[in-house]
Design a protein around this nucleic acid. Sequence first.
RNA 1: GGGCGCGUAGCUCAAUGGCAGAGCAGCGGCCUUUUAAGCCGUUUGUUGAGGGUUCGAGUCCCUCCGCGCUCACCA
Length: 512
Amino acid sequence: MAEYSALEKIRLQKIEELRAEGIDPYPTRAERTHTSAQVIAEFEAAGISTDPAANEVKATLAGRIRASRAMGKVSFAHIEDSAGRIQLFFRINELGKDRVDFFNRMFDLGDFIQASGVMFRTKTGEITLHVHDFKLLAKSITPLPADKDVTQEDGTVIRYAALESPEIRARQRYADLAVNPEVRETFRKRAALIKALRTFLDDHEFLEVETPILQPLYGGAAARPFMTHHNELEQDMYLRISFELYLKRLLVGNLERVYEIGRDFRNEGVSFKHNPEFTQLEFYWAYADYLQVMELTEQMVAYAAEEVTDSTTVKFGEHVLDFKPPWKRVEMRQGILETSGIDFAEHKTAEALFKAIKHKQPKAAPDPKSTRGKLIDFLLSEFLEPTLIQPTFLYNYPRDISPLAKSIPGDPLTVERFEGYVAGFELCNAFTELNDPLDQEQRFLEMGRDYAADDKEKHPLDEDYLRAMRYGMPPNGGFGMGVDRLAMLLVNKHSIRDVLLFPALRQEEFGE
RNA sequence: GGGCGCGUAGCUCAAUGGCAGAGCAGCGGCCUUUUAAGCCGUUUGUUGAGGGUUCGAGUCCCUCCGCGCUCACCA
């Protein structure tokens, strides 16, 4: 059972009084005719007319009370709906003293109210509803976190209070949304982003598909999975860590361009750019290679930026990011050479590369047990990544950290792969997909060996995927992107939690 | 998982080891065009939880819980 605070007890008392007076504090229906924005637009348009009769704008509005000022025989209140705020004006002339008193006595900040009347402009010019009738739509028991503060006695110190606790904002997103309109705006932009990505891919003749979230095997990435169990089938199942292997099966089935936007689940650490479940976009494009995917990517992201922010240049922290194509392209070997002074191509084994790193960068601390690919990855994240602020494609990756990508012709150690970096972090990852089933089987086996050597869970070998490949898979380019990360960039938020409505948090204790 | 930091009223925050406070919100008044309304009066606390040191703990120590930052992990 909830423990009620003193403030809540007062409001519960009001609910009882309302019921005693025969008033339902939670009536079933509302009769709104306009949103706040609609009625303001209509009133402004009517004002232009020369016909006085057309100037009267009647409306029934509904929303949450966010401010109220009782002044004896008149009262003002502001209500908020999803479109904005609008002022209500209550006066005894129209309503009578009892009704105005009733409003002042029984209505609290946070309550939902419906009010009917005629629009007018106050002395100070604010477009306001002159209330002729009103009713309670829903009583609020728990006060919303107050969202303002005051002038101090010395007259100089001014402070605004708002709901700021990151924990409460994330845990009680409903309260955060209710009191922080800019949070609502963030999530509208997120929705616009996903819509834009969909529109772009639809317009490029990609087919949107849905593949299993609950999978008998997991694959397509190197993360640890969440496990569960199907009782009736008596088998363990996994939440997917990527869509890749299912989407590529569809290419075998002659669906030439497919994409999916959905949730991936990775049982890994949580950080400002990692949440255990996150939204991924992947597409696969038959007869294309990674260079074509690169061009489509920069067009798609620029289109999304334009749709969401009306511009391809976006402010992100101290940076102004420019998504306009073409993005900068940096060959990985070259980029690492320029930022770390090490040319990994000259060091063909892990031991040699490790020595070179210790020699050139004595302060760096790579793991001595790393494979050569891991060492290159270390150089990338340590030296090159932080320099990649403007959208940049980093391309040509070491083969042994890219088991699903195709080698560059004539260069078996390097694969046709790129990652898009923005603001120093990875946004997307793509390659010319490996479509040779025999090579793929070999890579899976190598990967299994790596994992076994690591004494971690062995990566499962997906026999059904290999069977699909053996029917023949067209050459194709594939792409994956963290949609939450793109959302962060476009709304200028520096934590993934700020673009997730309900980010993962430890279970809250509610006590006995 | 490691390191650092934080947790005080509904919200934002104070309080040298010495009476737990302020503003807003709330409650009671006054006020017929206010809008961060104003004026008068007034209530509100398991200081995250538990233990310890001390004449005395919000403050110092220990354990636990939660959150933040960071490192590790993370193709």
